[in-house]
Each structure stands twice: as structure tokens, then as C-alpha cells.
Design a protein around this nucleic acid. Structure first.
Length: 331
DNA sequence: AAATCGGGCAACCGCGCGCAG
DNA sequence: CCTGCGCGCGGTTGCCCGATT
């Protein structure tokens, strides 16, 4: 039953690769391509040199070494300013989906991008007063947290007693309102984990006072989650795309209300809730997931990114420039 | 000159998904 | 249909090296 083991793990070498091992791996991939990594250790080396023994590496390790270091056309020089800007932009939109981000950076690997982010860019953003996780001003975050502590919502706590948000070091509840404040970000970010979350259907479609709406969303943040199961179908398949496109419209009415790309998030949810299947919570919730997944398939995240990058409005309406300041994350 | 510290990066680990058997 | 491996991914670790004391 099942496939045979990929390698003898007790007889596998770990640690840094030697030049000889690199040569074996390169020679193998140049003649056989990069498929079937599990067979690489057995065949690499043996075919190159009749005296040499096979490559004593796990296929997984071979793949990693090749994709991160040996692959042709890899860039080994420093990241350019344009690449930095693009990484920050894409991270704001996609979160830590490094492979997707790296796809937009020719010659860079996900490991490259991830390391660069962790060692350089996240620090840079902090120095500029930007939270590298939410991509929002740290001052705003502190204000939001303080506001939440002062203004707990009795209504929301009673309504959401059946659901408690997961508490973990990675996502403490106190940070949730910050995500939720920025509906586009929240939806885009949580989409990647396939968490179905209803966007604020009760939020005014076009509030006069953005700050009021901000507060409204903070106070009722748990309402979003409490109604997950009842997040009714008919979800606009364009929503995730639209969310992403609206990322840097912070401060604009569009971002504050969730009206992005000509659609209002509130409208989307309300439309679904008023549909005929409004009571079929579980079924519609799965339909919601299906809609999102279908959207992913149909659109393709790459296409989404391409469209976003092609849209000058994404850069804060600055006329298509891509410098840090124009994008809104710079100092 | 030696010791310590911190940053950068390559590599490993563990998980989820898809698919072969 | 079930089991378990291959693959890809994100998170984490540990080593190396330069800067500082």
C-alpha cells in the first residue's frame, strides 16, 4: 500500500553542501531536468562519475538546494529599491506567501525574499513607524488597541458568546480589530488561510465620518466572526481581488467602507443575506468557500497581482509611481 | 588579540494538499 | 476508498562572519 519511502533517512547527509555535491546535482538536473526529486540522490553522482558514490542527500534537500542556490538565472546581488517596494506592496496584500511574492521577482527565490524581509525590510518599516504585519502606522495600532480596551461592546459580546476568537501568540485578540478596521486587508489576509469571514454588513455603505466607522468596526469586531456560519452565499467572486486592489486606499472613503473596485462589501453580504437560502447557514458557508476558491482558480493570484500592479490607483493615486513615499508605506 | 555580540543567510523542520498505489 | 508518500510552502534554526568591546 502506498509508495515506497523516498530515501533512507538514517543514511542521509545534512548540513552545508559541498562543491562536489553541487556539481553532481547540477549535472543531474542539466540532463534530467528537475522532476522526481526523490530519484535524484540515487542517480546523481552515479551517472556523472563511475567512481563516485551516489549523492547522500534527501531528495527534499536536493530540491531545496537547487531551487534556492543552483537554479539558473538566480540573482545573487542585493535587492534593488524597486524590488523592495514590490515586496512590501505584495506582502501588504498577500501576507507571508513568499512563493507568490517571489514569483513576481525574477531571479529571486521565496527563501531569498523571506530572509530579506525578516532581516531588513521588517526593520526598515518599523523604523519608519509602520507595523510590518499590518502595514499600518504603529501609532494607529496603539490608538486602536487603547480604544478597544476602553470601549468594550456589550452588544457584540452578547451576540458573539458562542464564538471566541482563537487566542495565540501569533494572533492575539487585541490585534484583530486592527485587521478588521481595514476590511480589504482582513479579507485578503484571512483568505489565504481559507477562513470564511463575513465583512461588516452592518457598516454604513457610505459613512460621512470615517472615524466613526472606524470605531464602529473596532467595537463590533467579534460580530464579524460570530456570524461566520451565517455568512450567506452569493458572495461576489471578485471580492478578494477587489480587496487587494484597495489595500493602499487607507483614509479614503473607499477603503473605510469596503467599497473597492466599484463594489461595496456591505452590499455583497447584504445581497447574500437577502437571498432565498438565507437560512441555510452551513451550506452557504461552504458555498462561500467554494466561491473564493473558484475565484482563486479562475483569476489566478498571479493575474491578480499583475492587475494590481498595472493599476496606478493602487499606489495611492499618485499617478503610477512606485516609490515608497507614493505607495504610502514610506516615511 | 581575544571574547562577545548581532546580522545575514543557507538549510532544516513540520505541515497541508494532492495523488499514486 | 484508504493509506501514506511526494511536493511545495512557510516558519525556524544554526552556522558563519564582520563589528564591537
Amino acid at each position: 500500500m502506498g509508495r515506497p519511502p523516498c530515501c533512507d533517512k538514517a543514511n542521509v547527509k545534512k548540513g552545508p553542501w559541498t562543491a562536489e555535491e553541487d556539481a553532481k546535482l547540477l549535472a543531474y538536473t542539466s540532463t534530467h531536468g528537475t522532476g522526481n526529486w526523490t530519484s535524484v540522490p540515487q542517480r546523481a553522482g552515479r551517472e556523472i562519475n563511475s567512481i563516485s558514490c551516489r549523492l547522500k542527500r534527501c531528495g527534499k534537500s536536493c530540491r531545496l538546494r537547487y531551487t534556492n542556490y543552483l537554479r539558473p538565472n538566480l540573482k545573487h546581488e542585493n535587492f534593488t529599491q524597486e524590488e523592495e517596494d514590490l515586496i512590501v506592496t505584495l506582502h501588504a496584500m498577500l501576507g507571508s506567501r513568499w512563493s507568490l511574492i517571489a514569483n513576481q521577482l525574477p531571479g529571486r527565490t521565496d527563501n531569498d525574499v523571506k530572509n530579506y524581509w525578516n532581516t531588513k525590510l521588517s526593520k526598515k518599516l518599523r523604523q519608519r513607524g509602520i507595523d510590518p504585519i499590518t502595514h499600518r502606522p504603529i501609532a494607529d495600532l496603539m490608538h486602536s488597541i487603547g480604544t478597544l480596551a476602553i470601549r468594550p461592546s456589550p452588544a457584540s459580546s452578547s451576540n458573539s458568546s458562542s464564538y471566541l476568537p482563537p487566542t495565540s501568540a501569533a494572533s492575539p485578540p487585541a490585534t484583530l480589530p486592527v485587521f478588521l478596521h481595514d476590511a480589504p486587508y482582513f479579507t485578503a489576509h484571512h483568505h489565504q488561510h481559507q477562513v470564511v469571514t463575513k465583512v461588516d454588513a452592518d457598516a454604513p455603505a457610505s459613512p460621512v465620518d470615517e472615524k466613526q466607522n472606524h470605531l464602529h468596526q473596532q467595537i463590533n469586531w467579534s460580530d464579524f466572526l460570530a456570524d461566520d456560519a451565517a455568512a450567506h452565499g452569493a458572495v461576489d467572486a471578485q471580492a478578494p481581488q477587489a480587496n487587494a486592489l484597495g489595500m493602499y486606499q487607507e483614509g479614503s472613503v473607499a477603503a473605510a467602507t469596503g467599497v473597492v473596485g466599484g463594489r461595496a462589501f456591505g452590499d455583497v453580504v447584504v445581497d447574500g443575506a437577502s437571498g432565498g437560502d438565507a437560512d441555510d447557514g452551513a451550506g452557504d458557508a461552504s458555498a462561500f468557500i467554494d466561491a473564493i476558491l473558484d475565484c482563486d482558480k479562475e483569476m489566478g493570484v498571479d493575474q491578480l497581482i499583475a492587475e494590481m500592479l498595472a493599476d496606478p490607483a493602487y499606489y495611492g493615486g499618485g499617478g503610477g509611481g512606485s516609490s515608497s513615499s507614493e505607495m504610502g508605506w514610506g516615511c
